Simulated assay, not measured.
Amino acid sequence: MMHSESMATAYTTVDGDFVHELEIKRSRFITYLRRVESEEQARGLIAELRKSHFDARHHCSAFILGADRMAMRSNDDGEPSGTAGIPMLDALAKRETAPGVTDLSDIVAVVVRYFGGILLGAGGLVRAYSDSVSSALDTAPLLRRQRMRILGVDADYVAAGKLENDLRAGGIQVLGTDYGPRLATLRVALNDENDAIEQFKDRLATLSAGSSTAENLGTEWVDVR
């Protein structure tokens, strides 16, 4: 997802889809987390779960979008106002992904509740929905997204494979290789800082004996695993 208007340089999201279940006073709270890049995708998961869990009483949701987390939405779906969606959103928004860092985004959480016959009360519902999302996040796989400088590195077909291996061995993230009619172009992601780019160009000159050059292809958001 491109966030060209963003001031943020990195954020954290969930790595794919994740499901976690809690039982609280006989009610089942099933939390679904999904990485999404638009409100349409977030609402898509909600619609999917309404169909697959058509017999559940509630499908409460919260999502955060964008590197700067400009879009935040929540829905109580029939639970008393403020007892489900907002606690879920708080659990996402206040989640620390590193000490003192709250940057979780491009994520939707849906909690499907099967009522167990015991009323929890407003305070109990707030805790249940908050704990459901927090517990899911405790074990969900997360990944960093970073805005990086992309460089295109040309090499002949014979040298491209070895050059890619050498760059990876040196800790450089190679996104892939495009094969043109005459040359291969390696797409390399670097920290968007002048020093990092200059160091890379020096290393490239050494590895390729000066035969390869790097072209600036702009910036994009990259998964850092």
Rank of each mutant, 00 (worst) to 15 (best):
H3T: 11
E5N: 15
E5L: 14
M7P: 00
A8R: 13
T9R: 15
A10I: 01
Y11V: 10
V14F: 09
G16Y: 09
E21R: 15
L22Y: 01
K25G: 00
S27A: 11
S27T: 07
Y32W: 13
R35L: 03
E39M: 04
Q41M: 10
R43K: 13
E48A: 13
S52W: 03
H53W: 01
F54W: 13
A56I: 06
H58G: 12
C60K: 05
S61C: 13
F63P: 02
G66P: 01
G66E: 05
R69P: 00
R73W: 00
S74F: 12
G78L: 11
E79K: 11
E79H: 12
S81H: 15
S81Y: 07
G85D: 12
L89M: 12
D90E: 14
A91Q: 13
L92N: 07
A93T: 11
E96I: 00
P99E: 14
P99Y: 14
R113N: 04
F115E: 10
G116A: 05
I118C: 06
G124H: 06
V126P: 01
Y129I: 09
D131T: 12
S135K: 14
S135Y: 04
L143E: 10
R145G: 04
R147K: 14
I150S: 06
G152R: 07
V153C: 08
D154C: 07
D156R: 04
Y157E: 11
G161A: 14
G161P: 00
K162Y: 02
D166G: 02
D166F: 00
L167P: 05
R168M: 12
A169Q: 07
A169N: 11
G180M: 09
G180C: 00
P181F: 08
A184F: 02
T185E: 09
T185K: 05
T185M: 08
R187V: 03
L190P: 02
D192V: 03
E193R: 15
F200P: 00
R203T: 14
A205C: 08
A205Y: 05
S208H: 09
S212P: 09
S212N: 08
N216M: 04
N216V: 00
G218I: 11
R225P: 02
